[in-house]
Computed example of a mutant assay.
Amino acid sequence: MSSPVESAKKLAAYRAVDENFPENAKVIGIGSGSTVIYVAERIGQLKNKDSFTCIPTGFQSKQLIIDNGLKLGAIEQFPDIDIAFDGADEVDPQLNLIKGGGACLFQEKLVAAAAKKFIVVADYRKESKKLGESWRQGVPIEIVPNSYAKVTQALYALGAKKVDLRQGGKAKAGPVITDNNNFLLDADFGEIEDPEKLHVQIKLLVGVVDTGLFTQMASKAYFGEESGEVTLWKV
């Protein structure tokens, strides 16, 4: 391991799998992110790995499933998932999450919503007293491409301090395109007092596919700490 944090991420991921993986699981959701790499690694070590199918939340998690010799399926085939593991960009004590920094938020939410149990695995930098406190890039919002001007206007009316159409950077001239061929807006609302209310307000806007606010979805969050230890938050 290259650092105590990396060791802790691995410990957190392994513990999350060991403590929560259902005995007779048939369908498992696997997300993306630097800590979920170790979740896939641990699941790939299970002796019964041929007895269940893994559902990805995007391209990266599809590769994790394949690389660890796991059986790959699609949510269209398996809409009922026994348990899903995923990372997060920020987590508050009520286990509200901001997700979508990696641009997979809709598929991540679809898999989490389909799962009987949803477990978050992350590192200590994702722990927060309130959403928007440490994750300052804004709430990721997936939108239909031609709605970006109208939705941007509406987000400012809802109290956003800044709204950015996420760009591809050096890799691409123009906006990021999601796995669903949509655009992403990042809307900074500062510290969010009521994540569920804000999610509903944004979701109701015409053109919005979904938001990176995940509320009342996760049951546990495992964090790899800077000290090399693991912290568990649960509701």
Rank of each mutant, 00 (worst) to 15 (best):
A113V: 04
V144G: 00
L158M: 06
I119W: 09
D92N: 04
Q94S: 02
L95Y: 01
K116T: 05
Q137K: 13
Q107A: 07
T152V: 00
F106G: 09
A149L: 14
W135R: 07
N146W: 02
W135Y: 12
S128R: 08
D92L: 03
L158H: 03
A112H: 13
G101V: 13
A112F: 08
K109A: 06
K116V: 06
V111C: 15
S134D: 10
A115Y: 12
I143M: 08
G101E: 05
V121N: 11
K116G: 04
K162N: 01
S128G: 01
L97G: 03
A154N: 02
R136F: 11
K162Q: 15
F118T: 13
L105E: 04
A115P: 07
Q94F: 00
K130I: 06
S134L: 12
S128N: 05
K129D: 15
S128V: 09
I119T: 05
V144D: 07
D92Y: 02
R136L: 12
N146L: 10
C104Y: 02
G138D: 10
V120T: 14
S147F: 10
K99Q: 11
A115T: 11
S147I: 06
C104S: 14
K116F: 11
S128E: 04
D123K: 08
G159Y: 02
N146H: 13
P145H: 07
G132D: 14
G102R: 06
S134M: 09
L105I: 02
N96C: 09
Y148K: 13
F118P: 14
V121A: 14
W135Q: 05
L95Q: 00
V120F: 04
E127N: 04
N96E: 03
I143Y: 10
A114T: 15
K116C: 00
Y156M: 00
A160M: 01
R136G: 14
F106I: 08
A113F: 09
K150E: 11
L158P: 06
D123L: 12
K117E: 15
L158C: 07
V121D: 14
T152K: 04
V121E: 09
A88I: 04
A115S: 08
N96M: 08
G100T: 04
D89Q: 01
E108R: 08
D86I: 00
F118I: 11
Y124L: 05
E90M: 04
A122S: 15
Q153G: 01
E90T: 00
N146F: 11
L155C: 13
K109W: 08
G102D: 06
A157F: 00
